[in-house]
Design a protein around this nucleic acid. Structure first.
Lengths: 141, 141
DNA sequence: CTCTAGTTGCAACTTGTTCGCAATTAAAAC
DNA sequence: GTTTTAATTGCGAACAAGTTGCAACTAGAG
């Protein structure tokens, strides 16, 4: 999520043979500095704040390109809209706070292991997985 | 998923105060005998085979009503369209075969338990969750 | 049998996303 | 630097899934 990362998105795009244009540069900046999991409209809003005139179709196209090249990760939570995060180093799952919409990442070795085990016992090989836990702040206690 | 069930969907609708009309009766039949997780278009197709003339908007509205009353469960897999299954007795998760699109149910006490634990440690209370494992048949071995 | 609120078909609409196309442009090749 | 050309862009139109307004219809309570 955050800019803890290594090589800038821009560099990684170049290495993937993607052209760095004006609009794209801004989109990448926005993505790189995103601390959350914005959807396309939100990205477009942030981009427009920096440089108005970038069409939302361009944002869509750019996100598709980036996803194709594995440079970002696309999520589809229950609100039915795509959300993105710069491809994280390690896999993780998500808490979605149903009250605020906020997304929190977490990971559990143990759950991953159990999944492997269960898949195997069903004769499957895991391609990918998605664990979303819809939560609310624990009251009282 | 299958008709292993108890009280018919129709009865449960009546008990929920939903009217049983012609179109609705057919939709419920189709749902009840579904062995899979059909989307609205597929449901509509099946309904139309039994009784043509039912509008797809009616299927949408009926599914919304049923979901409101907890009589069916709505899923949103990565294909981005709603899919449904008659509300199952017990919670379960899903394998989605990425090659065939087929959906297989499974459940794991242990994973559920771990989720609780992790949520708690983050100060959350679980509202619901969703674990989807995208798989393919295990080759060779 | 009557009456009314729930339900339906239909067409129009909304929302999120993609597409065609002509104009622009990054960056590879001179 | 200049040329070249394939990738990218803006724009408006087109899509796809799902929803809605409304007048007509009807299940089921009384």
């Amino acid at each position: 999520m955050t800019g803890t990362s290594e090589a800038s998105l821009i560099d990684r795009c170049r290495r993937s043979g993607l052209r760095i244009t004006g609009p794209r540069r801004v989109i990448l900046e926005v993505l790189q500095s995103a601390e959350d999991h914005p959807d396309v409209e939100e990205l477009h809003r942030r981009v427009s704040r920096i440089e108005p005139g970038v069409n939302i179709a361009t944002v869509y196209r750019t996100m598709n390109k980036l996803a194709e090249h594995g440079l970002i990760e696309r999520h589809m939570f229950d609100d039915g809209r795509q959300r993105f995060e710069p491809a994280p180093a390690a896999h993780h799952d998500h808490f979605i706070n149903v009250e605020s919409g906020e997304v929190v990442e977490f990971c559990s070795e143990e759950i991953e292991r159990l999944q492997e085990e269960i898949a195997k016992s069903h004769g499957f090989e895991i391609v990918s997985h998605k664990l979303e836990i819809y939560v609310r702040p624990r009251r009282s206690r």
